[in-house]
Amino acid sequence: MLQLNVKNESSRLRAVVLGTAKSNGPTPTIEEAYDPKSLEHIIAGTYPVEQDMILEMEAFNKVFQKYDVKVYRPEIIENCNQIFTRDIGFVIDDIFIKANILPDRENELDAINYIIETMHPDKVVRPPEEVHIEGGDVMLWNDYIFIGTYKGADYKDYITARTNMQGVEYIKKIFPHKIVKEFNLSKSRTEPRDNALHLDCCFQPVGENKGIIYKGGFLDEADYQYLVELFGMENLFHIEREEMYHMFSNVFSIDKNVVVSEKNFIRLNNWLRENGFVVEEIPYAEISKQEGLLRCSTLPLIRD
């Protein structure tokens, strides 16, 4: 039996599901784009090719091997984008929550069924249909669960709105002992620089008391202020609009002091090192063209 345990974003990682770029399928059509950033690259003819993305994910995998992390990979589905495992499920404490994802992504969940079957059945839950919640919107910080959402009445019109208020209420019900705080995120179907697809596109804790944040990702200034007060202004690395577009807040922690980051994130990586972090730099710029990065490609199962 797999003994699940995830309580925050940065404790020592022991087991993770890393997505795969194999048999990723042809470049989507304009109509098939799920997010404005992919759309931008489809139109420009710069959408990433499978071989480049496989190499980037292999670089990520090598870092996990270096730190002796048990890595699971999804079973390959022909012509299917299976890079972003964070969307399909997530672990809080010792419970695995299956996400209600966009309907045509359901088979991505089937591809990790062989892992789910090794979990205790009582520890695997599936929210009811009206509950929308994706792992990129769920951020753990010990006693806190931060959840990105979109509160607009036009929620259903946005393919970029992935977690609804029913999702927030559902998590509150399952984890009554936690402080669950939701954040209303900026959404755009057309301009990726104004679209916080998930909470991890505009915020992520690193280490024990630090974080990376993009103020413009929050529709309500009070939500941004909440994090400033909780973490302290001096502990937050503020990213600019263009850095948010390149997904600076979507790094991934292997330990309290070890962060995997994109090699082009010079300003962030310098700040991390100045604050005592070991930065494992890898190329991930091709994958980022799909509005997802390092955290999006991982589904942590066990942290110390």
Rank of each mutant, 00 (worst) to 15 (best):
M1D: 11
G19W: 03
G19L: 10
E31M: 06
P36V: 12
H41L: 12
H41N: 11
A44Y: 01
Y47W: 08
Q51W: 01
L55N: 08
E56W: 01
M57T: 10
F60A: 15
F60D: 14
N61Q: 08
I77D: 12
Q82G: 07
I83P: 10
D87L: 09
V91M: 04
D94R: 10
F96E: 09
P103A: 09
N113L: 11
P121V: 08
R126C: 15
M139S: 07
G148L: 01
G152W: 03
A153L: 09
Y158Q: 05
N164F: 01
M165D: 12
M165W: 03
S186F: 05
R189Q: 15
E191V: 12
P192L: 07
P192K: 03
H198Y: 02
C202Q: 05
G207K: 08
I213V: 08
G217M: 03
A222Q: 13
L227I: 02
V228L: 06
L230G: 02
G232N: 08
H238L: 12
I239A: 13
R241M: 11
Y245P: 01
N250M: 06
F252C: 09
N257C: 09
N269A: 06
R273L: 05
G276Y: 02
I282G: 09
I287C: 12
P300G: 12
D304Y: 01
